[in-house]
Design a protein around this nucleic acid. Structure first.
Lengths: 185, 185
DNA sequence: TAGGCCATGTAACCGGTTACATGATTAG
DNA sequence: CTAATCATGTAACCGGTTACATGGCCTA
């Protein structure tokens, strides 16, 4: 899903600004299965507007910068429904933590422990985001998606907390076999 | 994790070729948490070699193209351990399926059903890949990572199969409200 | 005989990130 | 007084994908 389509999806659920869309996809409701930065959102919205798929209006605010509020147009809704009807791509999951876990034997124990702690915090954070944001959307599929996210995140979290000691037992084994590394410290 | 580091990780566990690395990351052991294409793997290996982090040898085969087998060098192992000791980035998960699920009310029922079926097949496929590949690696963390993957994938799969009807009940609701679309069909 | 597998590689392209520019307001 | 929040935007850069080129062997 490119940022264009993502913007249409969010605008389909209600008017929004570039700033708000970015918050939604990095800290908000959508953050656990999409991502985008200002540098892609603002150009996407501009292009969407020149193509007539969305419209915008300026809203002046006292003491704050003006907001540029975008609304989806009928053409945009059509384009979005079209996009929805082309077969979805496979999920894309990249995890540096898992790559690192595979190589646990090369890591210093303290470092592995820190990485595991960080991963646990990250997963807890994601769960909290879902809990906090679940009430804030009109999208009918919101609850369903939130529960899907909870199920996956929670099972990962449970697995890590219950089995971390097994992984931690591996730390350093690869290093111990190479005393040159140890000696250099 | 960039492709460079990924190559080092795989070569750290044993010699390999660009072709094999690509298979590992798209259909094999690593496929559920990393990805890379030929267009990034081959240049990465070349650069790694010119920098002295890996070495290569040609292996001629009867009736098949020659293989260029890469081995990690001591310098490469060091560089990899260094990379491992910098704090890991957050997981990156992107799911077109979940975006689509959030907008279930805009989809034709038949289409949603197909998307759900596809997602179920995808998850089952990922689980099968893990089961098939789990014996094929020397990496000590392999089992642990495989079980982490199984836990997440399985809970997602369970959630979908048990709750798909709720989502399917939403399909078309957004379209029904706009009879113009229906009439145009 | 068509297509898939093995196997390596390149070049054009592109989507997206990073970092920057701007600037008022508010909270700590 | 500092840092964060609100708010929009641009430009350089970059990592990676897509598509192509090559070609023999094996299977359906």
């Amino acid at each position: 899903m490119n940022v264009r389509t993502l913007c249409l999806a969010i605008l389909n659920a209600g008017d929004s600004t570039g700033y708000e869309i970015r918050k939604l996809v990095t800290d908000g409701y959508f953050s656990h299965f999409v991502d985008a930065s200002y540098g892609s959102i603002y150009p996407a919205l501009n292009r969407l507007e020149t193509e007539g798929l969305v419209t915008s209006r300026e809203e002046l605010q006292a003491g704050k910068p003006a907001r540029k509020v975008y609304s989806i147009a009928d053409e945009g809704r059509e384009a979005f429904v079209d996009a929805l009807s082309t077969p979805a791509r496979k999920d894309n999951f990249k995890s540096e933590f898992l790559l690192l876990a595979m190589c646990a034997e090369l890591m210093k124990p303290a470092h592995l422990t820190r990485a595991i702690d960080a991963q646990i915090e990250y997963l807890k954070g994601e769960l909290e985001i879902i809990d906090a944001a679940v009430e804030e959307t009109d999208m009918l599929g919101g609850d369903w998606v939130a529960n899907y996210g909870r199920a996956c995140l929670q099972s990962g979290l449970n697995y890590i907390t219950e089995n971390r000691s097994e992984l931690e037992a591996l730390a350093g084994l690869g290093r111990a076999a190479r005393s040159d590394v140890i000696a250099a410290e």
